[in-house]
């Protein structure tokens, strides 16, 4: 133990903590892959959740299939699948390959990795959004119906905004996970935070210092997110007079389908 500690190169650890341009780029890559995948995943989640409650059976089936497939296979597999899959679509090239998005060109692996993470996230967010929608009292929908909204309008204007408050804790968990899971895209050659660490130790072989430093960076990201989440919950819950004691129970407690009216 003493020798191990003695061997810990504190100055190298601190050097890894004070980022160079490469680390800044890697950090930024981690953040934007995570944010884009989360935003797209949440939108997919809303579609999956509302599709799963649709009055039309094909939509319900589709939503069920989606959740089944994307929750039922490893993310790592999905990432490699989309990477090589997009290689098939765009012509099989080696990794330094760009995708023209019109407004910018992006590394192909980043596109594939972000798509994979977003699609995977959609399946999980679908369940969280569904639970949030079910947790909103039927009376809220009925009050919208009786002033003359259709059920679809009631869902969009009345139920979803209230469900948004209820899904934030679950969404917060998911984004926290996303910040870390995004490290998996390193396997298809994206230089995000984890890949940058790999690059660093492959030249210095100082694994412990490098991993300790990158752990601090991940902690920094998740901590910032934690603070953002608290603000988000306060903002969305500003109409509530008292603190919510058990949001988890409200989110995961409801199991039945929504009542329908047409």
């Amino acid at each position: 133990m003493g020798t191990l500690l003695a061997a810990f190169d504190t100055s190298y650890f601190l050097e890894r903590l004070s980022p160079d341009q490469l680390l800044w780029d890697a950090l930024w890559t981690t953040v934007y892959i995570s944010v884009v995948a989360m935003v797209v995943g949440t939108l997919i989640g809303v579609l999956v959740a509302t599709g799963g409650m649709s009055r039309h059976a094909p939509f319900r089936l589709l939503a069920g299939l989606y959740t089944w497939v994307f929750r039922g296979t490893p993310v790592l597999l999905q990432i490699t699948f989309w990477y090589y899959g997009s290689n098939l679509l765009f012509g099989f090239e080696l990794i330094p390959r760009t995708v023209d998005l019109g407004f910018a060109t992006v590394h192909g692996a980043i596109v594939a990795g972000t798509i994979a993470l977003a699609l995977n996230e959609g399946a999980y967010m679908g369940e969280i959004v569904r639970a949030g929608i079910l947790a909103v009292d039927d009376g809220q929908t009925e009050a919208a119906l009786v002033v003359g909204l259709t059920e679809d309008q009631a869902l969009r204007s009345i139920v979803l905004p209230q469900a948004a408050r209820l899904i934030v804790p679950g969404l917060g968990n998911e984004f926290n996970n996303m910040l870390k899971t995004s490290s998996l895209v390193s396997v298809i050659g994206v230089t995000e935070l984890f890949a940058d660490a790999q690059r660093a130790y492959s030249s210095t072989f100082q694994y412990v210092e490098v991993f300790a430093a990158v752990a601090v960076w991940y902690l920094a990201l998740t901590t910032i997110w934690m603070l953002v989440q608290v603000q988000l919950e306060r903002r969305l819950g500003r109409h509530e007079r008292r603190e919510d004691e058990s949001m988890a129970a409200r989110i995961f407690g409801a199991g039945q389908r929504r009542k329908t009216y047409s």
Binding site: Q140, E142, A143, V146
Partner: peptide, 18 residues
């Protein structure tokens, strides 16, 4: 929906949008 908009309905549990 148009027909319902002509009919006011008051619920036992109010159902105001919180």
């Amino acid at each position: 929906a148009a027909q319902r908009s002509q009919i006011g309905f008051v619920f036992q549990r109010f159902n105001l949008w919180p």
